[in-house]
């Protein structure tokens, strides 16, 4: 059964269906409906909803709940995510799973509450201190948002790496029909033999993100790096639209990815063979698929709601095989398909 839901609400409902037991938050626009939905529905399902005194406290509550072995989540928007970065680094260092939702808005600083994609660097390059990565998933529809939330919990548990849903204000606010995923069978959720459950009848367990001995800390880091290589090998996700015969390839994610789909259609109606590669996992990034397409498509146009953050990864993927122009909008301004189309025309022969 399909139901009409706002993106923020679908993310919240999907988290409950994924078995999220503890949700900690601090209010911020444009993800307010997510907080409200959790306040209304999570306690009814036997879960814990708690509004913290700050984003810093909320992410550290997530840290505690995750250490206790339950599925846990927090959500925020750009300035709030910056505050969470300390705790996210600790989660990564301690190898604690958790899901963090960032419904991005315009920045830097207080910015505004309009949709933007200016947090790409922060999300995909670690964001906090130290050598770590998050699994970053970027939905472009409400339906996909719900599905990726379920996936984020599974991947985070499996790899013991925090996962981020990187959405934006437009996706959070828009309403679409959505087929909600079936609730997970709690029995199928991965066992956590590292969780702090009390040392009765077993050796004590510790959850740490530090080792003062450089060799020890190096080993901890190598464990993380091995995990990241495994994720890169198995968890790259992307969508391709009309790439088979494309003469110009658009690369865009999230809300921009969705607009770019329309642009591809408009371009083809005018005889320009445009195609789209939409990264779904921003980390691990689809370097190889983009590289393969750049072997035969002469122009790879990156389109973002930023000054060109993902563009850097696209250029790393292309490595000079094709021209790599960029088109972006800033400050919460969302370009129309026609504006992007004229950019496509400029670069297509």
């Amino acid at each position: 059964m399909r139901v009409l839901m706002r993106g923020n609400e679908a993310i919240a409902e999907a988290a409950i269906r994924a078995g999220c037991k503890c949700y900690f938050c601090y209010p911020i626009t444009p993800q307010g409906e997510l907080v409200e939905y959790m306040a209304r529905h999570l306690p009814q399902q036997g879960g814990v909803f708690l509004q913290a005194e700050s984003e810093v406290a909320a992410i550290n509550m997530v840290y505690g709940a995750s250490a206790a072995g339950v599925r846990t989540m927090t959500s925020s928007s750009s300035p709030g995510i910056s505050l969470k970065m300390e705790g996210i680094s600790y989660l990564a260092g301690s190898r604690l799973p958790a899901v963090i939702v960032n419904v991005m808005r315009g920045g830097p600083g207080l910015g505004n509450i309009a949709p933007a994609q200016g947090d790409y660097f922060q999300a995909t390059k670690g964001g906090g201190h130290g050598d770590y990565r998050l699994i970053v998933l970027a939905p472009s529809t409400v339906q996909e948002a719900a599905e990726l939330v379920m996936l984020a919990f599974d991947l985070s548990d499996h790899y013991r790496v925090p996962a981020m849903i990187l959405a934006d204000g437009m996706l959070g606010q828009m309403m679409e029909p959505v087929e909600l995923p079936e609730p997970v069978d709690e029995g199928t959720i991965l066992e956590k033999p590292w969780a702090l459950t009390g040392a009765e009848g077993r050796e004590p367990r510790v959850v740490l993100s530090f080792d003062l001995d450089p060799q020890g800390l190096k080993e901890m880091n190598l464990t993380l790096q091995r995990t990241y290589r495994e994720i890169e090998a198995h968890e790259v996700r992307w969508e391709e639209v009309d790439t088979a015969d494309a003469e110009i390839l658009l690369v865009a994610y999230g809300t921009m990815g969705r607009i770019a789909k329309t642009v591809v259609r408009l371009a083809r109606a005018e005889g320009i063979r445009a195609g789209l590669l939409r990264p779904i996992s921003l980390w691990p990034f689809p370097y190889e698929p983009i590289r393969a397409l750049a072997e035969r498509i002469p122009v790879v146009l990156t389109v973002e709601l930023s000054a060109g953050q993902m563009w850097e990864d696209v250029r790393l993927a292309v490595e000079g095989r094709a021209a790599t122009p960029f088109y972006g909008e800033l400050g919460g301004v969302v370009p129309t398909p026609k504006e992007i189309l004229s950019e496509v025309k400029k670069h297509a022969r």
Binding site: K21, C22, F24, V48, L50, A52, V56, A57, A58, N60, M61, V62, Y63, G64, A65, S66, A67, A68, G69, V70, T72, E86, G87, Y90, S94, L196, T197, G198, A199, P204, R205, V206, V207, L208, S209, F210
Partner: peptide, 24 residues
């Protein structure tokens, strides 16, 4: 100690404690 332990970020122990206690 011979019990389970977690190390918290500077100053955040009461928030971490909240998460642990609420979860279990």
């Amino acid at each position: 100690y011979r019990c389970d332990f977690v190390q918290a970020a500077h100053g955040r122990a009461c928030a971490v404690a909240t998460g642990l206690k609420r979860a279990n």
